[in-house]
Design a protein around this nucleic acid. Structure first.
Length: 350
DNA sequence: CATCCGTGGGG
DNA sequence: TCCCCAAGGAT
């Protein structure tokens, strides 16, 4: 089957089955000439990096309501943006989001570059995001290659090379199918297909617009693709976290360094996280064992975090960290592992 | 090219 | 309970 026929059939499917998203201009409106706001497209694409649509929705609404334009975001306080991002993960994205907004204002007059090439130069914008914004916001015939596209291409064209080695081949195949007309709808259509029909575990081939041409389907091996090189097991690390509550209700927190795990986020002072961490209290106090530990899994290790809590008098000077007044403290501004620690500690204190 | 970087839901 | 994985990017 010709590439043009495949693209046509996919767009016809998309016209009927496009998912409705807060940041998306649907195929009907788009054909009526409506164009999405590049700022909203960029915001959604950054949030969607390695993150599910369901997780992104509320965050997208909150960010757009609080910072409606790239200029508003560029003028925001770093801490406010990090707090608003808390819980969404991959916090380097939030730091780069701010850097990018400020670059757009400082270097591009507050307008996003309208080409893949120009977008690619922005912080936090890689090959995928540059193509996605170029195609969706500016209708440049750029090819998007995300996990969905890799899966769909590997099946339709029966690519047995394991990822990530197969990436260039899958990119070439995806490029062949990218039409000059409606490239933005095409990009979103492939991803919708991967997310709703050509799913990882049990693809719904019976309702797929590409059932007939799909080579993997013909061979009956669709559920085994794409192949992936095995990943190594996660080790378990141990650590201590110290939750100090001052007499007036203030909590002792510290801002983590910009680089590395949970970079730029607020957290409880703690020990190192490794096989045998040493205790590292941030001030002298009667530290109590809470009798419960936080279990949390990061991308590449499991963590078991033992909690120490203490009530300290007004005027206490910590060796590190800052007491955050009760009125300003919001658990929702903490990354999830730190919020879990707080929830466990206050439960134990009651 | 390999490693680091979160989180929550589903099977 | 555990593993997979989701609209990846930076180094």
């Amino acid at each position: 089957m010709r590439d043009e026929q495949l693209s046509h059939d996919l767009l016809a499917w998309y016209d009927r089955h496009a998912r409705v998203m807060p940041w998306r201009v649907g195929p009907a409106d788009r054909r009526a000439g409506v164009r999405p706001d590049p700022y909203a497209v960029w915001m959604s694409e950054v949030m969607l990096q390695q993150t599910t649509v369901a997780a992104v929705r509320d965050y997208f609404h909150r960010f757009m309501a609080r910072w409606p334009t790239v200029g508003d975001l560029a003028a925001a306080e770093d801490g406010d943006v990090m707090a608003e991002w808390a819980g969404l993960g991959y916090y380097a994205r939030a730091r780069n989001l701010l850097k990018c907004a400020r670059a757009v204002v400082a270097d591009h007059g507050g307008q996003f570059p309208d080409s893949r090439e120009g977008l690619l130069a922005l912080p936090g914008v890689g090959p995928y995001t540059a193509s996605a914004v170029a195609a969706i916001a500016f209708d440049e015939p750029a090819t998007v290659v995300d996990g969905n596209v890799e899966r769909v291409m590997s099946r339709v064209f029966l690519v047995e090379t394991p990822l990530p080695a197969a990436k260039p081949e899958l990119t070439d195949l995806a490029a062949r199918l990218t039409p000059q007309d409606r490239p933005g709808d095409h990009a979103q259509a492939v991803m919708d297909l991967g997310a709703t029909v050509c799913t990882p575990k049990s693809p719904a081939c019976g309702i797929c617009p590409w059932m007939e041409p799909c080579t993997a389907r013909a061979e009956g091996v669709q559920a085994t693709l794409p192949r992936k090189t095995p990943k190594k097991a996660k080790p378990t690390r141990l650590g201590y976290a110290y939750l100090a509550r001052r007499a007036d209700g203030a909590w002792l927190l510290e801002r983590r360094p910009d680089r590395g795990l949970l970079g730029g986020m607020l957290g409880w002072p703690g020990s190192e996280w490794n096989d045998a961490p040493a205790e590292a209290p941030p001030l002298d106090a009667r530290w109590r064992d809470v009798g419960a530990e936080v279990r949390h899994t990061f991308t590449h290790f499991h963590l078991r975090l033992a909690l120490r809590v203490a009530d300290v008098p007004a005027g206490t000077r910590p060796d590190r960290g800052t007491f955050v007044p009760r009125a300003e403290f919001r658990p929702a501004a903490l990354p999830t592992v730190m919020r879990k620690a707080y929830d466990l500690a206050v439960t134990a204190l009651d």
